[in-house]
Design a protein around this nucleic acid. Sequence first.
DNA 1: CTTTGAAATATCGTACACGATTAAATCGCG
DNA 2: CGCGATTTAATCGTGTACGATATTTCAAAG
Lengths: 166, 166
Amino acid sequence: MTNSAAQPARAGLMTMNGELTKTKLPQSAEEMICFAIYSAGHAVNRAYSPLLKALGLTYPQYIALMVLWETDGLSVGALSRRLRMESSTLTPLLKRLERLGHVERRRGVEDERQVFVHLTKSGRALQRRSPEITACIIKATGMDLTRLEELVEALSALRDNMIKAA
Amino acid sequence: MTNSAAQPARAGLMTMNGELTKTKLPQSAEEMICFAIYSAGHAVNRAYSPLLKALGLTYPQYIALMVLWETDGLSVGALSRRLRMESSTLTPLLKRLERLGHVERRRGVEDERQVFVHLTKSGRALQRRSPEITACIIKATGMDLTRLEELVEALSALRDNMIKAA
DNA sequence: CTTTGAAATATCGTACACGATTAAATCGCG
DNA sequence: CGCGATTTAATCGTGTACGATATTTCAAAG
């Protein structure tokens, strides 16, 4: 399984500035940030999914609800900015949540372009099931809270940087 | 080592609407890990996509190719284990890569259940475009390589733990 | 050999996810 | 006041993603 066609392990040609400090470009897929975040993201999704299934929710639906639990009555646009998600993703997701009876979508009165999303009693009730799920997930991470917080910090910074760089 | 971590630390601090129950679960830290990894993952995807578009590739296709550049001729199953991806995801992806002329799928001879994936000349040629993309992404992260490596390390550990806990 | 079962892919149904486009409503500026 | 730009959601097309299931092939007993 070792690599036959010896990769040159090219030294840095990156254009940042004179960094000769860490010249090795990560070559192995496992080392690359793209693979790490990609596979970790899916692993988290798969860890949540069976727990959420008991509530009849998907992982993205749950995340959208988390934001609404924090701030109810957001517009689709505001929600999409918080979630960093396109309206083309959010609209069908919200329609499903509406069909499930967890939210209501109401057209704005003074600006009829906007649509506001309000939790129903049922949608608010789901929040009470959240702590058990959280506990389950934290346990599954196998990390202590300090480390998790650091990781969240780093990921948030990464996300914001990449959005800024776009 | 299993679950020593889920210690309460403190009663809920982080609730915005004030009605935190008696659960000592730290919603704060983790309510964010799912969102953090979710949004960061998509941000990375969106950063790669325009760069890959120049090569006619999607982000998951690129990641699959990365593994093949490292080890050509893997079976679908071996590839799926490396990518932590189901065959139901991988099969159509590989068919698209085949239609694009970057790989060939060949049924095994001694075991006809297996399908082996081989890079074509075209698929191997794409590897040469990889370093520029990597450099671009690393720059967009706004982090130095040491920090990125730590992050990759943490994410890989997180992923493996969550898979093990499943 | 044949039955039983396991393994390796593939297929199917549902649900994201994005960019590009569209449609409707509001705004801006002459 | 008018009409083109802008804003806001929704729609469309393509491509992941997953679990559940099907299909084909191999393996293990009998």
